[in-house]
Design a protein around this nucleic acid. Structure first.
Lengths: 238, 238
DNA sequence: GCTCCTTAGTGACTATTAGACACTAAAAGA
DNA sequence: TCTTTTAGTGTCTAATAGTCACTAAGGAGC
């Protein structure tokens, strides 16, 4: 009796299709650290373990795969993230004890306070520091998926500021730079970082200031085009 | 009677899973033009129409999704491509008349002559110029998928030479440059193109020369690391 | 108010890498 | 030998990131 024979999914015309799920790596920057959202699994398999927010594609409810990702994220956070990007699809025989299964993975970004209240009221959803999550024993292959998402965000940080959607709606340039430094893993030249952003006109100056300990810092908001903008030259690679 | 109720796929534990397929956009450079491989569909739905090489994931045969992509490409070309990269996964209710379906798409590159003989012996497999393919009426959403693959290759051409795997095993710098010009859609400065490749040491000089009409050109081969290498600065965007 | 500390923001020079383009090199054919 | 063709290079310019010291604007201690 082989393992994968436990629960074959069989179509009317005789095609066995694997289980199809969606998992999202939802990043958020808070308290000067980068966190991701983890969920405690309430049912088998891997019941009780922490894993990524996601679940099975419901072809009666969801119009497309992205709809599944959003539905699951809204279930856990109560809000839709402003950034959602398909990461990679992983499918093989061994990743799920139920047999051949496929997960379509997404990277999502959100402001921490947009969902802080909802998350703090439940015990099965938690923000975990990225590096800590990568050391945890998680359900299925979710740790690998987080690693892939992190690496992709690291690469992107060299030529894009789209990761700014992980900050609060209004943020300082110092915060945006620190987030990039966390992703890249080394310090960035303040001058280079600010110059290219200003020249490309990627942020909206709210006119407001925020102060903590020194000169007040200007508060900015993301322009929508900052999601797609690519600088022609990378910051120094690590 | 609704359309998507025709053939529900239902798991042992009552989960309806969508049809799961893989499609590959296989590029190859030949006769100074960029072509992709199309296949005439031999069965319904869309029987008789041309579409991308691919098919249904067979969980009895395939160990993972990439194995399906390779298996289908070998069926049509008789060889495995040296470059295979996951592109995007598309899944929704409307793309296949059989109902909710998902396709995991790949970009593949191969030398034309590696499979020319096999392809030329069958009538249901054909190389089609990329621009022509984008004007054809193809099965399902395959034209859109080709458009996505093309755009991704265009972007990559600005900071990578991995597309060189669409050339013959040994090629001249002029050929590699022309391929990049086809992808980017505008001429490239010869000096810039060659300088960065030489400095990064991405090619192997075979020592051989090939001549056609003027001074003989040196023949090169791809180094494996040229797949992953990213130049820190893009060529001029179009 | 004055000095010092802290964080924000800028001026100005250097370094790296692509763009431009004319020049040389090596072959064939008249 | 001259012309034509394609391959390959020398060299200057332009764009953009790196470096780092400097100024700016606030608070705290005195």
């Amino acid at each position: 009796m082989t393992q994968q024979a436990k629960s074959p999914r069989r179509a009317g015309h005789g095609i066995k299709t694997p289980l199809l799920t969606v998992d999202s790596v939802l990043f958020s920057y808070h308290d000067k650290s980068l966190k991701i959202l983890l969920v405690r699994r309430s049912s088998d398999p891997e019941k009780g373990k922490w894993g990524l927010p996601g679940g099975i594609v419901d072809i009666d409810i969801d119009d497309d795969i992205e709809a599944t990702a959003l539905r699951k994220l809204v279930e856990k956070t109560s809000v839709e993230p402003p950034y959602l990007d398909q990461l990679e699809t992983i499918g093989n025989r061994g990743r799920d004890p139920r047999g051949w299964s496929v997960t379509v993975c997404y990277t999502a970004l959100i402001a921490h306070q947009a969902c802080a209240q909802h998350v703090s009221t439940v015990s099965d959803v938690r923000w975990v520091e990225l590096d800590a999550a990568l050391k945890m024993k998680l359900a299925f292959d979710h740790r690998e998926i987080i690693g892939i998402a992190r690496e992709r965000q690291r690469q992107r940080a060299l030529y894009s500021i789209s990761s700014g959607y992980a900050l609060a709606e209004e943020f300082t340039l110092a915060e945006l730079q620190h987030l990039h430094e966390l992703l890249i893993g080394k310090p960035i030249q303040k001058r280079s970082f600010r110059r290219r952003i200003e020249q490309a006109g990627l942020l909206i100056d709210t006119g407001k200031k925020r102060q903590e300990g020194g000169r007040p810092a200007a508060l900015y908001r993301m322009k929508p085009e900052s999601i797609t903008h690519r600088f022609v030259r990378n910051l120094e690679a690590s």
